[in-house]
């Protein structure tokens, strides 16, 4: 149940790096990834970001590999659709299925490869952010960028309660399985509904009591958030800008190369 990426965030080797820099690197890489016209730059981003996450931030290797399976199914399915829908160029693969002619042509295959590469590049950049930057630091960056106070408060309270409710859902689910609540589709549906219903009511009651607790601690419509995270070191700033410039150069230089 506890497979949130957040668990690893607090024990990575980059925890004392400035959150702004980490966000800049992750989001910068993502944007370059989706603006690239060929699969080369996204693949470069995917590999370099994975190396940064595993080698520099010291995220366990096996866990990181299991994460890479998440985008795989979606990327293959959607790129499959794209590959079949795009004609043009010579035919690479053809099949007759129930009277429909399914075929992959050069353009479609190129586009599908580009999409898979972009998805992996983007996901690796996203994993970098989620595995190295604690949510609280992201909140403090957002706050300093001018997001309204009530939205930051709302997100922080939500963040806190997500863990409470996941635990409760887990306990309820265990209790249901112990009592054979998952025997057959009808029971499973009913159990799932009871679980969600009880979870909602518990959440609601927590919420009703929460304002009392907050008032008791002098809540005046604003939760105080410490500016967290270290200041950016000049060396790190140069390294990240250098990396982004190199990627941008790769995007620019490879924009006319066709793989197939």
């Amino acid at each position: 149940m506890h497979d949130l990426l957040d668990d690893y965030t607090h024990f990575n080797a980059l925890i004392n790096t400035s959150p702004r820099l980490k966000l800049l690197l992750g989001i910068g890489a993502m944007l370059l990834c989706i603006s690239s016209a060929t699969p080369i730059a996204p693949l470069f981003i995917a590999i370099s970001m994975s190396l940064i996450t595993v080698v520099i931030a010291k995220i366990p290797r096996l866990f990181y590999c299991s994460l890479l399976l998440i985008p795989l199914s979606f990327a293959l399915l959607s790129s499959g659709v794209v590959a079949f829908m795009h004609g043009g160029g010579s035919q690479l693969f053809g099949m007759n299925l129930l009277g429909f002619m399914l075929e992959i042509r050069e353009d479609g295959a190129n586009l599908a490869l580009l999409l898979i590469a972009r998805t992996f590049g983007g996901m690796c950049s996203l994993f970098f952010i989620s595995l190295t930057t604690p949510m609280m630091e992201i909140f403090s960056v957002l706050k300093s960028l001018g997001l309204p106070d009530f939205l930051v408060d709302l997100s922080m309270l939500m963040y806190r309660y997500i863990f409470v409710f996941i635990d409760q859902a887990h306990l309820i689910h265990n209790a249901q399985v112990m009592r054979l609540g998952d025997a057959g589709i009808k029971n499973t549906l009913n159990s799932h509904a009871i679980l969600s219903g009880v979870l909602f009511l518990r959440a609601w009651e927590q919420g009703e009591r929460l304002i009392v607790a907050m008032d008791a601690r002098c809540y005046d419509g604003k939760l105080v958030l410490m500016e967290q995270g270290a200041k950016a070191k000049p060396r790190a700033i140069f390294a990240i800008i250098g990396y982004l410039v190199v990627v941008e150069a790769i995007v620019f230089l490879t924009k006319d190369i066709q793989l197939l």
């Binding site: 009530f150 408060d153 709302l154 309270l157 939500m158 963040y159 806190r160 309660y161 997500i162 409470v164 409710f165 996941i166 859902a169 799932h192 679980l195 969600s196 979870l199 909602f200 959440a203 609601w204 927590q206 919420g207 009703e208 929460l210 304002i211 907050m214």
Partner: peptide
């Protein structure tokens, strides 16, 4: 209403991750 909205948001998150 703020805490109620927050817990509801957390509920939506947990519900959609089940």
């Amino acid at each position: 209403i703020l805490p109620l909205l927050a817990v509801s948001g957390a509920f939506i998150f947990v519900l959609s991750s089940l």
